[in-house]
Design a protein around this nucleic acid. Structure first.
Lengths: 210, 210
DNA sequence: TAGCGTTGGTAACATAAGTTACACTGGTCG
DNA sequence: CGACCAGTGTAACTTATGTTACCAACGCTA
């Protein structure tokens, strides 16, 4: 854990803070697909991502989902921080996109570290900043783009996050994350295949050139 | 200014901070419709709202707009803080919705106050928290609701923000903020009128019961 | 091997929203 | 007064997206 922490956060945090984190943090590994936070749950700790990726999802009245953004190495969950302040329930769902390593820090430390460590403050602010910006871009995509453009962005992002030109998802799963329907996604994917940009297979999609 | 500040922020900030704000802050009044921040602009100061409301808008590739949320008394602009950190340009446009009074604080103070005053830290965190939540709810509305529901929410919010059951906007202006077209909005407004929920007039709308 | 569930392809249709076009009205300004 | 313009109402049409239905292909396992 110590080495992992230093690799991912050594350049951000001063040594004293690193030591504090080692004292109270717990190292965790989660597997792709594991549910990490459920909507309405109370938050116990704050995650510092060391490797892998976590997807953050929003749910509508019918229980259908919408992908908001991903967290990656060096990120933390602003929603979590947000919740800690007000002791409110989670507004979002978090699911591991890939196998992920992270360090959980008890939220009780937040207050103290925020006053004690400048690097921690900066990290927290930066994190909020990044999340707000990601929300903005997700918003752009949803409000301004057609489904075919949204699908394209989705595929691109998925390739980047998974570092894999092969997307191992069913059309149904993709439809779910884009808050659309399977038939629509199949239709648009087929169009992309006809354009020569992807190759469709059962249970996976080969990305050629996006 | 001193009195305004104490009224709106006295319960939030410790006296020493209030004094600091008085030292470096400048009092400003803006009129409804005034453009306060343009997309791509660099930010000079951070606004602390004393009264009135400011609308925050996002722009698409074609220059069309989308209303994100309003800032009110006691709010500040997280996007501004966000920008200060990274010295980046504004991602959004800010326009006074009503006549508004506010105190501008130079961004140079941010860093110092954040380490010096606990109440300032809490204020900044709280502000990020609120903005993230508002973004979430705007997102819900755009991703999950039909235009008629979005229009309804829009009208309700407008009444609340302006504290006025009469909405003094043309259909075109409403269409703009919802990123739709005039014809669509006229159509839906007429439907609402037929349902007896509003009364349409030239250049204004009477809200009966939403 | 036969049967079954999952996945994907596709057609036919329904609906929400955007677009174009044009008429009407009320107010303004020469 | 008459011309003009902004704001609104409405019809007719297009398009994107969602829905329903059904079939075919694949892989599993009884």
């Amino acid at each position: 854990m110590v080495q992992e922490l230093k690799n991912s956060y050594g350049h951000l945090f001063e040594d004293a803070l690193i030591n504090d984190i080692i004292q109270v943090g717990t190292y965790k590994e989660v597997s792709a697909g594991d549910k990490m936070i459920e909507i309405g749950a109370y938050i116990k700790g704050m995650p510092l991502l060391v490797s892998g990726a976590i997807k953050i999802l929003r749910e509508d009245k019918n229980g259908d989902e919408l992908l908001l953004y991903y967290l990656e190495k060096g990120d933390t969950c602003s929603m979590t921080m947000s919740c800690c302040m007000g002791q409110t329930k989670s507004e979002i769902r978090a699911i591991a996109e890939t196998d992920t390593k992270l360090i959980m820090v008890p939220i009780q430390k937040m207050e103290l570290w925020t006053s004690k460590y400048k690097s921690w403050r900066n990290f927290v602010f930066e994190s909020y900043h990044n999340r707000l910006n990601e929300m903005l871009h997700t918003m752009d995509s949803i409000a301004f783009d057609n489904m075919d453009e949204r699908l394209l962005s989705y595929l691109k992002e998925k390739v980047r996050i998974n570092k894999d030109k092969t997307i191992r998802n069913t059309h149904q799963e993709i439809a779910y994350e884009l808050h659309s329907s399977r038939v629509v996604i199949s239709r648009l994917l087929k169009k992309l295949e006809n354009m020569g940009r992807i190759k469709l297979h059962r249970n996976y999609i080969e990305i050629l050139n996006l």
